[in-house]
Amino acid sequence: MDKKPAEFDLDALFAEARGQAADPSPELMARVMADAIAMQPAPMRAAPPRRTSRLRQFLNAVGGWPAVAGLATAGVAGLWIGVNPPDAVATTAETLLGTSTDLYLVDLMPGYDLTFAEG
């Protein structure tokens, strides 16, 4: 390899150095790996599903005991109104639903009359 002083090829030397990189010792690799394991956060695991009773599932669905209290109150109130309706409720029901049988006389399918009449 003949080189004049002015042509001293530093880049060739760098290229050679790149190919000659010192390898880390197996001991260093092992030490780094031991650190990695020691420092590694524990794996994140999904919490196991808890067994829940049917009552608990129902409570979860409706929103817990406070919701059950509301349901009980509404149930008792509904039963009481049914057994002993106040006048206002009875009157309103008659007004809305009527007291006659008119509703049953509504001819929902008048076409059948014609069909029957024609035989």
């Binding site: 010192a22 880390p24 990695a36 394991i37 590694q40 956060p41 524990a42 794996p43």
Partner: peptide, 27 residues
Amino acid sequence: LYANGDGDAARSLNVRMTPRAFGQAMR
């Protein structure tokens, strides 16, 4: 992956990164 607890990721990072860190420090 390493932060999530993956052991293989630690090994791969070690193989990739340690030689670079060592090479630079050695130079």
